[in-house]
């Protein structure tokens, strides 16, 4: 069963120059226990999508279903339940922690609010969570500014895990970490998933990470989804021109072989009052007049959806 279903979700922000279409008609669903990797250009709406799905932001339009139930406009008790069952690990470990709380207090805070635990149990539970996230005990009474970036991110993870949620939006949870701790955290997230059947949306710019952790991948461009399919398929057969450009820009540690990068030229698109049609067209090497017509996601090969009117010719399908 799909744990989370999203249909035609929109999130717009008004600004002085017009309306930013941060998330513009996005639909997807995630099965329980799976990880959906979310990739795309910086500013394309990944964080906004994640935050809107878990109700940190109000949606502008569309439907969100959690465990089959329409939770787009939750009443108070439903909201309370959602707050416990849907969590987020933030991109930015610096600003997401309260500077006036010690590490232990930070981790205890959601436990206190939930009232699920007896007061006397709290320190013990916090200790267990610190252990789970790999934070040494000596940091119990430290404040966030005394920790390095990696440990701060672990605190965010411990906090998100506190109430054993069903669904976690991981918004670049390992970007600030060195590769060894990144490996530990990814292993940890995968272990927790296996043990508790957790479901993740995993936002990252590191394509080797997303390839490792996700079962499926969605590629976004300027507020819209342009390609989605199982992970293996995406890396084997990227079909959308933006996805191809993205994969071509991956940097590897092999200093003797460099990938041939597809350079993106053309005007930078704006998410403010965008014109109808493909939003990548201005920078797309294959664009024609036709691309100014709206183009929905289409199943091009089984399970592989792409929003591009030239997808067949480009890929000789």
């Amino acid at each position: 069963m799909a744990l989370l279903e999203v249909e035609h979700l929109k999130k717009y922000f008004p600004t002085s120059r017009g309306v930013v279409h941060a998330v513009d008609d996005v639909s997807f669903s995630i099965e329980k226990g799976k990880t959906m990797g979310l990739v795309g250009e910086s500013g394309c709406g990944k964080s906004t999508l994640g935050r809107t799905v878990i109700h940190l932001l109000d949606s502008t339009d569309g439907v969100i279903r959690f465990e089959g139930e329409d939770v787009t406009h939750p009443d108070k008790p439903t909201m309370h339940k959602l707050r416990e069952q849907m969590q987020i690990i933030f991109q930015d470990p610096y600003s997401s922690l309260n500077p006036r709380l010690t590490i232990q207090e930070t981790i205890m805070e959601p436990l206190q609010l939930s009232k699920r635990f007896d007061k006397t149990q709290l320190p013990k539970e916090a200790e267990r969570l610190m252990d789970l996230a790999g934070i040494e005990k000596r940091f119990r009474n430290a404040y966030p500014h005394e920790l390095d970036g990696g440990r701060r991110q672990r605190v965010g993870i411990a906090r998100a895990l506190a109430l054993m949620p069903k669904f976690i939006v991981c918004d670049e949870p390992v970007s600030a970490l060195d590769v060894s701790i990144q490996a530990q955290i990814l292993n940890l997230l995968m272990d927790l998933q296996e043990e508790y059947g957790l479901t993740y949306i995993f936002v990252t710019h590191d394509l080797s990470v997303v390839r490792h952790i996700s079962t499926d991948i969605c590629v976004m461009y300027l507020g819209q989804m342009v390609e989605t399919c199982p992970t293996k398929e995406l890396f084997a057969h990227p079909l959308h021109p933006y996805t191809k450009a993205l994969l071509s820009a991956i940097l590897t540690v092999d200093i003797h072989h460099k990938n041939e990068r597809i350079l993106l030229k053309g005007e930078i698109n704006s998410p403010i009052n965008p014109k109808p049609g493909c939003r990548f067209a201005q920078r797309c090497p294959y664009a024609t007049e036709e691309c100014h017509q709206p183009i929905p996601l289409q199943e091009v090969t089984p399970g592989h959806f792409v929003a591009c009117c030239h997808v067949k010719d480009i890929n000789n399908l």
């Binding site: 910086s42 993205l246 820009a249 991956i250």
Partner: peptide, 13 residues
């Protein structure tokens, strides 16, 4: 100091 950690690989490039 970590100038491109928050950037996708095309913008990073």
């Amino acid at each position: 100091d970590e100038p491109t950690t928050a950037l996708d690989v095309t913008i990073q490039a």
